[in-house]
Design a binder for these strands. Structure first.
Length: 505
RNA sequence: GGCGGCAUAGCCAAGCGGUAAGGCAGAGGUCUGCAAAACCUUUAUUCCUCGGUUCGACUCCGAGUGCCGCCUCCA
């Protein structure tokens, strides 16, 4: 396969074949990614409404855009990432009422929970997290502008966007104004001229939270906050706007309508939408009672396990979630971690200076080629609309090749591994680490990284030492007891030529 | 009803005009005190069905079947 590189270049005929290609929901095709301004990317992702616990669906969405963001940065772009919090909304008001608390308290509680879980999932922080309630002024400005231009009308203090005035309406969702199933009647007292019209501003009823506006006290409609906040932080045209597939209609369609009517500029260059999480092939919803919250999942499963599961499917495909799947993919993830641990062990035990310089063996040269190949394939996969399942394939190839190398060049030899061999293995470690980081996966499983576990690490060292002493004396009774007792605690010991490693089941 | 998506081995999942990546599970073998891990071999003459285009189709076109999502809050 030494000629592989030559083959590859001959396959790539045009320059435009190279470079990052992204599927754009607006044009429904993959396009070469070119931001407006050379290496700067402005990216907006619809955030959560903070009224309830985070679930797997949220996790998938934000992991998806986290990986996209990480890859853009890896590709040398400077990304300005904006993600909002909807902290005023009917559901928050409802919940506050139920619990007899202030809406602010509710919003803060779930905002904190959001960060707690997203941190566990290693989702990088956005550049800004604007909140709807802190941008009422900006929203009012846009609404007023839309009124002035004749795109909106006032009906008893409610301001509606008049959809028929915007000729491009439906260009994202393919939805026409008359496409509804006939059920949608104009609500009697709303004052809407057409069922398709949507609220920019809602006048408030007594006791509801309200802000002053030129049209009387009220609160913003759902869609306007995203237009106001995205344009405030990213300008009139965003490079990327992301969100879940369910947001395409009406939310994103309405964002386009109001933003473009107001700014007279294209609102978004690339629209990205992640696929949904289903449970037993059905949509996850409260009414079906099949919601998996992150809190529950993290009780028994590590965050990287969940993240890894998301990576096994393309971000635009639907993903069926289940605990069984989570366990299955853990085995795959462990395969990578097993190798990392093993390499570390070999490097630790190697004779540092050994015999000084010597020629690389054929096996070492071949491994180095495979490292480069894996990296190139990984990048090509990610360049193709962030194809993580394909990218994972290149990682697994590298893992297998490295294991084979270890088997032949390390395990098979009596003498200690010398510096030339460890240098090659170290390269694997570096590249593996780099790719894992790109996918947001920790290089060390999180179970061993928190504070309490630090002690555990030391204790495990002592235990394995004692056990290995017993083994050296062929005292299998004691050594096997230690192993089986640990096993019942969920800790698995693995004896290698170079020493013993352990991991959680 | 309108709009959109998907159908690839036991399961998950890439590929989308040049003859089926990868992972899990299974089987056999190697290594090992045993176990685990790891490695090797093996598991789709075939990609929902039927037509068509083509030298050639899982990949393109048409029809059909079956699932799913959106059209109401939603990642």
């Amino acid at each position: 396969m030494a000629k592989g590189g030559v083959c590859k270049t001959s396959i790539r005929r045009f320059d435009s074949d190279r470079g990052l290609h992204i599927y754009n929901s607006l044009t429904k095709q993959k396009e070469l990614f070119l931001p407006q301004e050379d290496n700067k990317v402005g990216m907006y992702v619809c955030g959560v409404t903070v009224y309830d616990n985070c679930h797997v669906g949220h996790a998938r969405a934000y992991v998806t855009f986290d990986i996209i963001r990480r890859y853009l940065e890896y590709r040398g772009y400077s990304v300005f990432y904006v993600q909002n919090f909807t902290d005023i909304d009917d559901k928050i008001i409802e919940r506050a009422k139920e619990e007899n608390r202030d809406i602010k308290e509710i919003a803060e509680r779930f905002t904190d929970e959001y960060f707690e879980h997203m941190d566990k999932l290693r989702i990088k922080k956005a550049s800004v997290y604007p909140k709807a309630t802190q941008h009422i002024k900006e929203m009012i400005t846009i609404i007023q502008g839309l009124l002035d231009k004749g795109y909106a009308y006032n009906a008893n203090g409610n301001i509606f966007f008049e959809v028929s005035k915007f000729k491009d309406y439906g260009k994202l969702s393919g939805r026409t104004v008359t496409g509804s199933p006939g059920v949608t009647q104009v609500e009697a007292d709303s004052g809407k001229r057409s069922p398709a019209d949507f609220a920019l501003w809602k006048s408030s009823k007594d006791g509801e939270p309200a802000w002053d506006s030129p049209w009387g006290p009220g609160r913003p409609g759902w869609h306007i906050e995203c237009s106001a906040m995205s344009m405030k932080y990213l300008g009139k045209t965003l490079d990327i706007h992301g969100g879940g597939q369910d947001l395409i209609f009406p939310h994103h369609e309405n964002e386009i309508a109001q933003s473009e009517s107001y700014s007279e500029q294209p609102f978004v260059k690339y629209w990205l939408h992640n696929g949904f999480v289903t449970i037993e092939d059905e949509k996850m919803s409260k009414s079906l009672g099949n919601v998996f919250t992150l809190k529950d999942i993290f009780k028994d499963h590590s965050p990287e396990n969940l993240r890894f599961l998301f990576l096994t499917a393309h971000y635009r495909s639907p993903m069926d979630f289940g605990i069984g799947k989570l366990k299955e993919t853990k085995t795959g993830l462990d395969k990578i971690y097993n190798l990392i641990e093993k390499i570390k062990l070999i490097i630790d035990r190697s004779s540092a200076n050994a015999f000084g310089e010597r020629q690389q063996t054929e096996e070492e040269k071949s491994l180095i080629e495979k490292i480069q190949k894996a990296k190139a394939e990984f990048e090509a996969a990610m360049d193709d609309d962030f194809n993580t399942p394909l990218a994972l394939g290149s990682i697994f190839d590298l893992v297998r090749d490295t294991n084979t190398f270890i088997k032949n060049a390390v395990d098979g030899k009596e003498e200690k591994v010398d510096s030339a061999a460890t240098e090659v293995l170290n390269r694997v470690l570096i590249v593996l680490g780099e790719l894992m980081e790109l996918l947001g996966l920790p290089v060390v499983p999180t179970d061993t990284t928190d504070r309490a576990s630090q002690h555990l690490t030391s204790i495990m060292e002592i235990l394995t030492e004692v056990r290995n002493t017993a083994r050296a004396k062929k005292n299998w009774e004691i050594s096997d007891k230690i192993r089986s007792d640990l096993d019942s605690l969920g800790i698995v010991l693995e004896d290698h030529r170079e020493g013993t490693t352990w991991k959680w089941k």
